[in-house]
Simulated assay, not measured.
Amino acid sequence: MQGDEALERERDAIVAALTPVVEGVAATFGPLCEAVLHDYRRPEASVVAVAGSVTGREVGGAMSEIGMRVLARGDEAADELNYVTRTGDGRLVKSSTMVLRDSTGAVFGALCLNLDIGPLSQAQSLLSGLTAPGGPGGRDADSSVGVPVTTFGNDIDSVVDAIVDAHQLHGHPSWAGLDRAARLELFRSLDEHGVFAVRRSVEQIAGRLGISRASAYHYLSQARATDRAEPGPSPKGARP
């Protein structure tokens, strides 16, 4: 349809206009900053521009689990600003994810800023220790304790694997250790995090859990049916 083609051209134009902004932002904030431009029309290769090196992203790389969460919320997604997470190698990162919308309000991408605040936190702790009265030890031994780990990867399969690991292991080391309610909750949680918006994700998750693809589709269908049966709004995003 002509309308769809016009919207695609509009989205392409927005992405093209923001591409030089990525370099400008990273250059302004220096080596501790990374700017990443995502086009969610291609979830497996959503990174279309990147400047700086905080999470190791590359052009053509996959979205993170944060991007999947935005994708799952669809057009209901909102900007997520100034949240703190931790990379797989332990770096503390302060991030903002700003969604991109076309003229109809549809979400199709995001501009993400990642700031490595580890050195800044260390400097702050040092200054606090030098200026605070009293003995050694300080008030906050490690303010980063409990900060969630986010998987940033250029390979979408590694990101999906990390999300499955994080959601499966709630005291149960295997699929066999989960009862039906827990299995449905696992699939519901994965669905809410946007995992099933990625191509081949059902097959990948079935392999990780040691079940058939048919069983995985069955549990996903049952989890969604349960959500629809529950009272109250339950916004859903993109579906496979």
Rank of each mutant, 00 (worst) to 15 (best):
C112P: 06
E80M: 10
N82V: 00
L127V: 14
V70R: 06
N114Y: 09
F108Y: 09
N82H: 03
D75P: 01
E65G: 12
A78E: 08
A141H: 12
P133I: 11
V99L: 10
A72M: 04
C112S: 06
R101H: 08
R73I: 01
P119T: 00
E65F: 01
L113S: 09
R73W: 00
D116G: 08
T104P: 07
G118D: 10
P133G: 14
S128R: 10
S64K: 01
G105C: 10
S128Q: 07
L92T: 15
E76L: 05
A72Q: 04
S128D: 11
S128L: 09
G67R: 02
G90N: 08
D142T: 03
A77Q: 03
S144F: 15
R57W: 02
T85V: 12
I117K: 00
I117C: 01
G129D: 15
R73Q: 11
N114M: 04
S64P: 01
G138S: 08
V70H: 12
S125A: 14
F108Q: 05
M98N: 09
L92H: 13
R139A: 15
G109R: 04
D89W: 11
A77D: 01
V70N: 05
L111G: 03
M98V: 11
V70Y: 05
L71D: 00
G134P: 11
L113E: 05
G134M: 09
A72L: 04
L111Y: 11
Q124S: 14
S64L: 01
C112D: 05
M68L: 06
R86H: 04
C112F: 06
S96G: 10
G137Y: 07
R139L: 15
R101T: 10
T85P: 00
G134T: 13
P119I: 01
G67Y: 04
E58Y: 02
